[in-house]
């Protein structure tokens, strides 16, 4: 598998920022009762992560160690402000609804996390790709949550009525607790899937069995 594909798989699934790393839930969970807002917010996060990783990776040899954090925050805020300005000019309705949450992208831990963990020691383009895929992994999960919340909470998807007229909206889905439960469900599902796959896959291939046997006895005991 090429390196770009490995990063893609890692960020979307094996190391997904939401259900494995539990990062950056804060800024977006609140808007997940509306699909359109979630799409725009998560896209904003993905783009900010991608471009701030790109910029920071390109500048990494120039940044003095003492002010690294401050420069990182500056770069991140720069892109977030650009997004805010664009939203205000071209999507005024969305900008009004998102309110303070656009600004909160700055404190999204994923962006800082990728800048520290990856962009710090990698080439600019690869960092860009890493940031983008991290953002996409984040987007995928939150969009899934938003589909459930908007469908059951309002009976609509992207504002278009889906549920039959007789459907009574579940108010709890619009309110905060449902988001916590849904995130927990996603975590449960993803972890069980990942845990379930590993023991099955191991005995299947003889090559892997051999390595497992050769490994220190800890695995044999377990």
């Amino acid at each position: 598998m090429s390196k770009t594909m490995a990063i893609l798989k890692d960020n979307l699934w094996t190391n997904n920022p939401i259900f494995i790393q539990i990062l950056g839930i804060c800024s977006t969970l609140a808007v997940t009762n509306n699909l359109r807002n979630t799409a725009i917010m998560t896209l904003g996060v993905a783009l900010t992560t991608a471009f701030s990783s790109l910029t920071l990776s390109a500048m990494k040899d120039l940044i003095p160690r003492k002010v690294r954090m401050i420069i990182q925050v500056l770069v991140i805020s720069f892109y977030v402000i650009i997004i805010d300005i664009l939203l205000r000019a071209y999507l005024p309705e969305v900008s009004k609804q998102l309110g303070p949450y656009v600004g909160l992208i700055i404190t999204n831990c994923i962006i800082m996390g990728r800048a520290e963990a990856f962009a710090q020691a990698s080439k600019p383009l690869l960092s860009w790709w890493d940031g983008l895929t991290s953002g996409l992994g984040y987007m995928a999960v939150l969009m899934g949550i938003a589909v459930v919340r908007e469908l059951l909470g309002f009976g609509t998807l992207f504002g278009i009525k889906i549920m039959p007229e007789a459907f009574v909206p579940w108010t709890i889905m619009i309110m905060a607790p449902s988001a916590f439960f849904l995130v927990a469900m996603v975590m449960w599902w993803a972890k069980s899937m990942q845990a379930g796959r590993k023991p099955e896959a191991k005995p299947a291939t003889p090559g892997q069995q051999a390595t497992a046997a050769a490994a220190p006895t800890t695995t044999a005991k377990a």
Binding site: F180, F181, V183, A184
Partner: peptide
């Protein structure tokens, strides 16, 4: 097992 740690905390 799948809910251990962060999962049950979220609930």
């Amino acid at each position: 097992a799948g809910l251990k740690g962060p999962g049950i905390t979220m609930i």
